[in-house]
Amino acid sequence: MSQLTRKEIEKLASLSRLNLTEEELVLMTEKLNAIFGYLDVIGSVNVDGVTPMSHVHGAINVLREDVAQPSMPNEELLKIAPDTSGRFIRTPLVIEG
């Protein structure tokens, strides 16, 4: 893998909504490249015909019946939410898009 540039890391940080300080950015650029240098060992492995493993133990069709259960009281949400208005959670204005 080519080296991750500071710019690419800034882009990843923005994709992940992570505000990084200048110091963190410098540190991340250095450490992430060290880590990716290590992760590249899988690059040369031949995996032709190998099925990717996304789940363990092969369980399938784990389903529930369509039965509605009583809700959590609204007050429980109001207790844990950082900002509320009436029964709602409040955030800065959401710009459509």
């Binding site: 899988i42 690059g43 995996v47 190998v50 990717p52 493993m53 996304s54």
Partner: peptide
Amino acid sequence: KAQKCRTL
């Protein structure tokens, strides 16, 4: 690729 390595 990692998921395939996981299989291995």
